[in-house]
């Protein structure tokens, strides 16, 4: 992703990637009033609230609609699309981020709840150009295929090690069970976590 941003010279978001034509095509097929495909809330339309949160070390004052999830705030308003929406119901772990250092499912976290708190996403893990040891370990162990679950897996994995729950293969599997990988990269994921737990301070 950082490489592509360099190439394009703009921060890449799904919105800029898809562009306007895709949206047009969609709206010509499906009526805009269909509640089943209501557009994500990019601007507050319901009850508004101003919050101050810290995201990846930067203070972010932002106005939200109180219905907004932390995941939608990150992706749609702050354009941090690393955290993924797999299920939007707490069932897959793709949206995992850290709030005040603890891992949470951002899809079931009201954005209003991070007022005054510090959020860390996958975008905030690397130290400049140096990958976080867990990111490097995922590469070393081929711990992904399509990569959709990976940002959530890595955020959960970092927390798993910090919590002291990466002490054996079985315990890693138990404490990583909230992160589903449809490609089945589990063997590599467990190996990557074991590597980091064994030798690094994270």
């Amino acid at each position: 992703m950082p490489d592509m941003e360099h190439l394009l010279g703009v921060p890449l978001t799904r919105r800029t990637a898809l562009g306007g034509t895709a949206a047009l095509t969609a709206s010509s097929v499906i009526s805009e009033s269909d509640p089943a495909i209501a557009a994500p809330l990019t601007k507050p339309v319901g009850v508004r609230m101003a919050i101050r949160t810290t995201v990846n070390g930067k203070a972010v004052p932002v106005e939200i609609d109180v219905r907004t999830s932390l995941l939608d705030l990150l992706r749609e308003q702050l354009h941090l699309t690393g955290a993924k929406k797999g299920c939007d119901h707490g069932q897959c772990g793709a949206c995992t981020v850290h709030v005040d250092g603890r891992r949470v499912a951002s899809c079931l976290t009201l954005a209003a709840k991070v007022d005054g708190r510090a959020v860390t996403t996958i975008e905030g893990l690397a130290d400049g150009k140096t990958l976080h040891p867990m990111q490097q370990a995922f590469i070393d162990h081929d711990a992904l295929q399509c990569g959709y679950c990976t940002p959530g897996q890595i955020m959960a994995a970092v927390a798993c090690v910090r919590e002291g729950n990466a002490t054996s293969k079985d315990r890693i599997r138990e404490y990583m069970s909230g992160n589903i990988c449809r490609c089945g990269a589990y063997v590599g994921i467990v190996a990557a976590i074991e590597q980091v737990a064994g030798r690094e301070k994270v």
Partner: peptide, 9 residues
């Protein structure tokens, strides 16, 4: 119960 992410919340 649930997952560590959910148990933290």
């Amino acid at each position: 119960a649930a997952s560590q992410q959910l148990r933290n919340m």
